[in-house]
Design a binder for these strands. Sequence first.
DNA 1: GAAAATAGCTTAAACGTTAAAGTAATTTCA
DNA 2: TGAAATTACTTTAACGTTTAAGCTATTTTC
Lengths: 350, 350
Amino acid sequence: MTKKKVTIKDIAKVAGVTATSVSLALNNRPGLGLKTRQKIIAIAEELNYRPDLVARSLINRKSQTLGLLIKNVSDPFFAHLVDDVESVAKDSGYNVMVCNVHNNRDLEKRHIEMLVGKRVEGMIISSVNFDARHIRSLVEDEFPFVLVNRRVYDPEIANRINHVIVDGFEAGYQAIEHLYRLGHDRIAVLTGTLKSSANIEKTNGVKKAMHDRGIFPDPRFIIECNNSKREAYNAARNLMRMENPPTAIFAQDDNMALSAREALLQGGIRIPEDMALLGFDDIEVSSLTGIELSTIREKKPSMARLSVEILIDLIKNSGSNKPRLPKQIVLKTEHVIRKTCGFYLKGYVR
Amino acid sequence: MTKKKVTIKDIAKVAGVTATSVSLALNNRPGLGLKTRQKIIAIAEELNYRPDLVARSLINRKSQTLGLLIKNVSDPFFAHLVDDVESVAKDSGYNVMVCNVHNNRDLEKRHIEMLVGKRVEGMIISSVNFDARHIRSLVEDEFPFVLVNRRVYDPEIANRINHVIVDGFEAGYQAIEHLYRLGHDRIAVLTGTLKSSANIEKTNGVKKAMHDRGIFPDPRFIIECNNSKREAYNAARNLMRMENPPTAIFAQDDNMALSAREALLQGGIRIPEDMALLGFDDIEVSSLTGIELSTIREKKPSMARLSVEILIDLIKNSGSNKPRLPKQIVLKTEHVIRKTCGFYLKGYVR
DNA sequence: GAAAATAGCTTAAACGTTAAAGTAATTTCA
DNA sequence: TGAAATTACTTTAACGTTTAAGCTATTTTC
């Protein structure tokens, strides 16, 4: 059985003082004589005392903890986000509770309630479905949070929300432009979940770019793959088997791109000779020799860093009631041209 | 400013009852009339009440939370571990707090204290340096925890600790045997941190296998790369530039193997023709077409699943004081033969 | 119809900590 | 020298919940 925890009272008893004095001593606060102070500290050390952060949280309404909601950590994009968020948060003395939400709206809601219940001081949310109700209640409660890579359209709250996103529209637009200039006009797009603003906007950019260039794609070319590897794999396999297949695929994240790549290569399709491939995110794998996926990535400073900084600022100022404008940051993207888009094969042809 | 939270007392006031009644109603416990019960629930709903889990934790000494210590989540091996642990834990109603420890013993200690302070009910530790003091104090406090992929040698506590590990010795032994049978006797080994039991044991297996086969490796062939990509990259580059280089490299994790691969390929070395390469872990990337890293992996059921199950069992029974033998599980490994070890090139030659 | 049981609620205490206010002894300094 | 200030501590209450025990009025039992 777990041994009984040593509390401040146990120390007090041994030291012959009151719990308050122990608290003062251990927290290094004035109002106590040097001798008593040292005695208390020694006893605490001796008894191997560890403060109960739960009790402390309860009384000062702080937890020194941030919540982070993501899709799932085994996706390298999010893993990297977690890492960055944690390291920036740590510099300000915050711990991070990570929750995997798995495209499950109900799970997201439960996790948000759990985090609020655990008194996290703020949240970074990178998982939210764009019309999520629960976000609204966070806004109404004036709970500090920042959306990352997601935005909310709900007009009643949209301009009260802090977010850090990439310019998905432009990225989508330029993706198509890039492929178009490489000579493609039969371009398939594997979209992420269209419940997420990031993917909606990329898709809008894609459509606008196509429209501007007079491309009217086969509707079967725009496939919602929900950021799922399996779905992307299947979609690519179906595409390549069409009687009149596309000549390029733009996958809205690198995971899907790599899965499509597997499908194509296994089907004997050469990349980029037979099919150009363009991803999004520039996860680490994409740069490996033999993979060399052409892709698009956010420019620095990272969404992770920015969002934590905004969040902490938000928390710090959440006492004051001067209304502050929400920070809504849109990061630009940049192309990382490697081998799979075919640029190095033939360059731009138009 | 964050709005004031609705508490049980607020509900009580509105309902004209006492806090106790509210608690009874919301927790669905007997001792209340149906009408009052319904009224209270309605009001709670109305006020958008969310229980304060901190207060609840304080009183029932439970947090419904497990701690998980890993090196860092952006390493796919650990990301996968996190994912598995979380999903198994969730099935039993536990949340998971993940802490990245980054090879930093002090950080590990602080994280452990934080987790204990936050009253996690148990921990899964996959980060610990084999001689870590802090583990000892967990043992002394009879705090429930399970080591994953790590074991502790300290004889005073070694047989009181629960762990789930892979048979590193055998894996290391067989790695060398495999390469040897493929014709190699100049084999370099990129080890993980030798502060971790997992790597120590792999290395012992390696040495034994070499010894048994009369191989006395150039000491410059055994390189501690600390599971670092950069170090593995540099090590591989140095190896290939030697006047009498090895003909095979065994990297003790796939990350290092892939980094070594980069170095070799960039240096014009063909894999496996000029240099065979064998990894460990079988992370997802390793199977991608064009990578096809030969590697070694744990057999199912996964360490993650087993460890959570053991931990939860431990927690459940931590009230009873019948002493239970610690569970110490050693998983076998299996080879995943792909292209980089050269098996498919020439098969075993001895 | 009196004793016993029950239903429906309340009171009080507890979890481990911190904050605010209070008290007694000591020091300061005009 | 004596009022004011300071020091070194203690007392009390609070954070939001749960729980054991208590109370009262009603119902059941035989």
